[in-house]
Design a protein around this nucleic acid. Structure first.
Length: 274
DNA sequence: AGTGTATCCTGCAGGC
DNA sequence: TGCCTGCAGGATACAC
């Protein structure tokens, strides 16, 4: 489910809640969402204080004062749900991990399908883990040149490349499809044949789409909710994703769907020629 | 190197 | 109402 804008929305909300709070204990209700040993996961966190909350790609990163990190990959249906007040449990339908905080507060990691993963990393492990992800598409250092370099290094369809977290961190299927519609590039176009002008268009389109989605609080199609329960609003602004058979917002040609790499891609056959 | 397929799970929508 | 199929925002392992 969640891509960069959803992870960013969640991280910003938790940044107003967690810093300064101490983890009293951790309850792992579903061991399969924790990487490594569940008892070790809890033991490594008990007694530590949150210092900040950030994001890397699609992952929400909870930073503790000793530089330990809890990296939360939300999979398709993961959520982080704070309880509304001390002693009041989070409104969680499929709780998988509970973080019990000082003062009786609690934050639940909730995940219907349990494709998400929580991992506890030391500072050194975090550095190594972060290094295997590609650049942040909204960072200053992610330039048009950088995009061009990434595209030129692969013959794979550009949609597949955009989903590869080792090349660019944070793009998922919705925003890949939307950026390609915006840049007028076919999802199956071989990356290394897009050309300089196409790379510049895609670079701008990807950043514009991701920024707009962050501003809208993400996209809610089914499960996604911010920690306060709010839905995102970006689904109202989708031009291609999920719009098979409906008219292109630029030229009225019906949007088409193709499946490759195991996932649906949506595109306008007129605006995004092969 | 890149692609198709399967796997991990549950829930929901649509067809009959 | 109920059963069946297909589909889902992700990541990974495997064979070819």
């Amino acid at each position: 489910m969640p891509e960069l804008p959803e992870a960013e929305t969640i991280a910003r909300a938790l940044a107003g809640i967690l810093p300064g709070r101490v983890i009293r204990s951790v309850t792992v209700l579903r061991e399969d969402v924790v990487a490594g040993s569940a008892p070790q996961f809890g033991a490594a966190l008990r007694g530590k204080r949150f210092s900040e909350v950030g994001r890397r790609g699609k992952n929400v990163v909870l930073v503790l004062e000793d530089a330990t990190r809890v990296v939360v990959n939300l999979g398709m249906t993961g959520r982080l749900v704070p309880g509304p007040g001390p002693g009041v449990p989070p409104a969680s339908t499929h709780p998988a991990v509970l973080f019990h905080l000082d003062g009786g507060a609690c934050v639940a990691y909730d995940d219907v399908r349990r494709f998400g993963r929580l991992r506890q990393l030391s500072r050194a492990e975090w550095t190594r883990w972060s290094r295997q992800l590609g650049p942040e598409p909204l960072s200053r250092s992610f330039t048009g040149r950088r995009m061009r370099g990434i595209l030129s290094g692969s013959r794979a369809p550009v949609r597949s490349l955009l989903l590869d977290q080792r090349r660019i961190a944070g793009t998922g299927n919705i925003y890949a499809v939307e950026a390609l519609w915006s840049a007028r590039i076919h999802p199956r176009a071989p990356s290394n044949q897009i050309g300089d002008a196409g790379a510049v268009r895609l670079h701008r389109a990807l950043r514009r789409v991701l920024r707009a989605a962050v501003g809208a609080g993400g996209t809610t199609l089914r499960n996604y909710r911010a920690p306060n329960g709010n839905e995102g609003l970006f689904q109202r602004r989708l031009h291609a994703y999920g719009r098979e058979g409906r008219p292109c917002h630029r030229c009225r040609t019906p949007i088409e769907r193709v499946v490759f790499g195991g996932r649906s891609a949506f595109f306008c056959p007129r605006c995004q020629p092969c």
